[in-house]
């Protein structure tokens, strides 16, 4: 029992500690990236390249007044940011960061919450994110926040459909839901140089999944939940100081966990990047470390892609968003599934 607890805490320190630790860095990259794309300078005063700016922001968050407006439903209003953070932390338990490795005579699984159906656990807990948003919007007792949260919820559930139908096709092709097995199947190569990544088996599925994770994490071009030009700030309008920061952290955690899943399912997951193989050949014990670094690097690229898209594509109108989700992506997902299944059947 005690050994188990220590193991869980150690895994948590890596699987959860690293994402929480890099959030300030991501915020900084996002702001500098925005400045780079818009030909501005961006925050560059605090420390080298303004690297300490996020720290200054955190300090400022801590010293701001905790306003609890008089008109809100107080218990739910305070609960909502905490709940949102918990919901954003939970999916990390199912993410494998490296192969199961031998520690002495024992096989250690890198997931905090090891289960054969780990990927379903991740999706279930990711979907819980909409509860925090709904509670926040309702408890704030404000027209803008209510609209923002209802919109966000409708958007998230609409795009979850295309997400799950993509997954059906993908699991059908892999024949398993075990993320370790899925990553192992992506370790071979076509013609000796092209890796057998999921994106080459399911290009349409990959595109659908990509669009859906943008919508799920409420990022531009799908940030209708915030929609500054119409709803001021959406569901977190009445929140200030640290309570707002918790929503902010939860959004970034969502981005990280969905990017990690995307990489695991479509881009070879923790399979070693070119070059790492040489080092691992010399020191075989370092395999888990370099697998983790490979995954980390791919997720980092994915996060940069989020930033890139955010500052390149304008926001949709709400009816466009719903039409895209229900009338384009869902039929496309169904067609993708049909084609996949019939192709596998014909091939025998």
């Amino acid at each position: 029992m005690q050994g188990e607890l220590i193991e869980i805490l150690l895994k948590t320190a890596v699987v959860l500690g690293v994402p929480l630790g890099v959030i300030p860095l991501i915020v900084h990259v996002e702001r500098r990236g925005a400045a780079f794309i818009q030909k501005r300078v961006g925050p560059n005063r605090v420390g080298l390249f303004g690297i300490f700016q996020p720290l200054a922001d955190v300090v400022k968050f801590l010293f701001k007044e905790e306003v609890v407006p008089a008109h809100v439903l107080k218990p739910l209003y305070i609960l909502a940011p905490i709940l949102t953070l918990v919901m954003a932390i939970l999916p990390f338990a199912g993410i494998p960061i490296c192969e199961p490795f031998m520690l002495g005579a024992r096989k250690v699984y890198p997931e905090i919450f090891r289960s054969d159906l780990g990927v379903f656990y991740v999706f279930a807990t990711t979907a819980l994110g909409s509860y925090g948003i709904l509670i926040a919007g309702w408890a704030s007792n404000n027209k803008y926040t209510l609209l923002g949260s209802i919109r966000a919820c409708a958007q998230m559930i609409s795009y979850e459909l295309s997400l799950s139908i993509t997954l059906v096709a993908l699991f059908f092709l892999y024949g398993t839901v075990d993320l370790h097995e899925i990553v192992r199947q992506q370790n071979a190569s076509f013609f000796g140089f092209l890796p057998t990544w999921g994106v080459f088996y399911q290009p349409v599925g990959c595109l659908l999944f990509l669009v859906a994770i943008f919508a799920e994490s409420n990022r531009l071009p799908f940030d209708l939940a915030e929609g500054e030009s119409e709803l001021v700030a959406g569901y977190h309008l009445e929140y200030s100081s640290m309570k707002f920061a918790l929503f902010f952290m939860a959004e970034y955690l969502h981005m990280i966990v969905l990017s990690a899943l995307f990489v695991l399912l479509f881009f070879g997951g923790y399979n070693l990047l070119p070059g790492f193989g040489l080092i691992v050949d010399m020191i075989p014990q370092s395999l888990p470390l370099f697998q983790f670094l490979s995954l980390f690097f791919k997720v980092a690229l994915m996060i940069w892609f989020f930033v890139w898209v955010r500052w390149s594509i304008p926001r949709f109108r709400y009816d466009q968003l719903m039409n895209l989700g229900w009338k384009r992506l869902l039929p496309l997902g169904i067609a993708n599934l049909m084609v996949t299944v019939l192709y596998v059947y014909w091939k025998g």
């Binding site: 801590l62 918990v86 932390i89 905090i112 919450f113 090891r114 640290m242 918790l246």
Partner: peptide, 18 residues
């Protein structure tokens, strides 16, 4: 147990920061 540990960590982190 892992699930409970994560819930407790999340709650503690949230309450502590607030």
């Amino acid at each position: 147990l892992p699930f409970l540990v994560l819930v407790i960590i999340g709650l503690t982190l949230g309450v502590l920061l607030l």
